[in-house]
Amino acid sequence: MAVHGPDLVGRRFSSQHTRLVTAEAISTFASAIEADPRFTPPTFLISFSVAAAEEFLPTIGFDWARVVHGDQRFVHHRDVRAGDELSYSSEIESYKNLAGNEFVSIRTDFISALDAENISSTWSTLVFRGEQS
């Protein structure tokens, strides 16, 4: 396990490509949580933001097998809709090591690739559990 420190704060990573939101992706997600497939669930964007973290954090030594979710927040300026093409970028906003457990808080901003409208922001704290816990 690599040793990390507060110098991680401010590290940024981005999606390499824009992602198209399909009606199928929304209805598949909605069905998995017993929701009405006509409306985008408020947590839908998690699949994009966690995928970005899952790609990036292991490249700097975080063990994805030891991750659990600490907290989560969404702010939606408007609902995500089928047909939206999203680009997104993430920044590590805080890092703490408490008793061997590493707490990494990441903000991700979702921008419409069509008109640069800021659609949503998400904040995730991921906890990488130390070997003893």
Partner: peptide, 20 residues
């Protein structure tokens, strides 16, 4: 989903947060 069950599925949650 519980919240949208209470208010109506078409309603938007503009902010939503929790700790696990």
């Amino acid at each position: 989903e519980a919240i949208r069950n209470w208010f109506g599925s078409e309603k938007s949650l503009t902010e939503f947060s929790t700790r696990f």
